[in-house]
Design a protein around this nucleic acid. Structure first.
Length: 274
DNA sequence: ACGGCGGCTGTTAGATAGAT
DNA sequence: ATCTATCTAACAGCCGCCGT
């Protein structure tokens, strides 16, 4: 089986799977083969592997690993070895450990300003003001700011998002100050778009100064804050899905599920317990 | 020391194929 | 036609090295 892994990866490439997927699958298949340790692969063995995974990983992670080896078995023509994924119930509320409030957001911006990191303050506001993903930040170009519209290509599709007027104004001023006339607005001294791991690091470094729990501060939490604020104001989930670039409303629902606190309040408000 | 940058593992967001 | 299971692609978190 080991010899077939290379072929499997080549096959995935021909199937136009992305590099990230191929790397993930390659790693997962190899870790299964290490578990098998050269023994003949049987359904029982695969099931035992699955049980082992469950002890060490989150259910969702177990499922990605199963997806990888299932694909491998199908590639080998061994459908009989495929195992079922774990079932996961959708959460009705999210933990408040991760839910960033508006007040905390403002404190973070202030913290960035006060340490003269205007770039970071603007990057955060750009993500939060448009709802884009951190990897989409490089799509915010000088051209996009001028036209007020950014075209984003990700997850195999393109979409365009609007840059709100106020944000355009502050970004223009920033660009003028740094003499940026084309290409991505947020660049490093080498001229390349700021790397996401650095954005992550910078955001975390603001926490102590702003008095915000670090667990709440990471690039995606600002996208969530955008979604919650948007929904709180106009209650239009279909429109929100368009802006976030979701082709499926179910995905959008993840963003607006109420916090545990709010969920509890709603349930108390029912008044069914005397 | 400090930001830039690449890379690794585990987790989650999000699209899609297939069942109902 | 809609919902769900499955699959895929990205993010989170972290580390280590590098050049300034």
């Amino acid at each position: 089986m080991k010899g077939k892994v290379e072929e499997y990866l080549e096959y995935l490439e021909k199937e136009e799977k992305s590099i990230a997927t191929r790397k993930q699958y390659g790693r997962d298949v190899m870790s299964f083969l290490r578990f098998a340790g050269g023994a003949r692969v049987t359904k029982e063995l695969v099931i035992r592997y699955k049980e082992n995974l469950q002890k060490a990983y989150q259910p969702a992670s177990v499922n990605t690993k199963i997806a990888a080896i299932n694909g491998f078995f199908t590639f080998l023509g061994r459908e009989d070895l495929r195992v079922k994924q774990l079932k996961i119930q959708r959460r009705a509320y999210c933990s408040k450990e991760k839910e960033l409030t508006r007040a905390e957001y403002l404190r973070l911006i202030q913290a960035a300003e006060s340490r003269n990191d205007g770039k970071l303050a603007l990057m955060i506001q750009t993500i939060c003001g448009t709802g884009i993903r951190v990897s989409e930040l490089s799509s915010i170009t000088a051209e996009a700011v001028q036209s007020g519209e950014a075209v984003i290509y990700l997850k195999g599709k393109t979409r365009s998002i609007l840059i709100p007027g106020k944000l355009r104004k502050v970004l223009s001023a920033y660009m003028k100050r740094l003499n940026i006339v084309s290409g991505p607005v947020f660049i490093t001294r080498t001229g390349r778009p700021v790397d996401r791991s650095n954005i992550w690091k910078m955001m975390k470094s603001l926490c102590a100064c702003a008095g915000v729990k670090p667990s709440k501060v990471f690039p995606h939490s600002f996208r969530h804050l955008f979604a919650r604020c948007f929904y709180a104001i106009n209650r239009d989930i279909a429109k929100l899905a368009d802006i976030l670039g979701h082709s499926n409303i179910n995905t959008t629902r993840i963003y607006i599920i109420s916090s545990g606190r709010e969920h509890r309040r709603h349930m108390d408000a029912l008044g069914l317990v005397l």
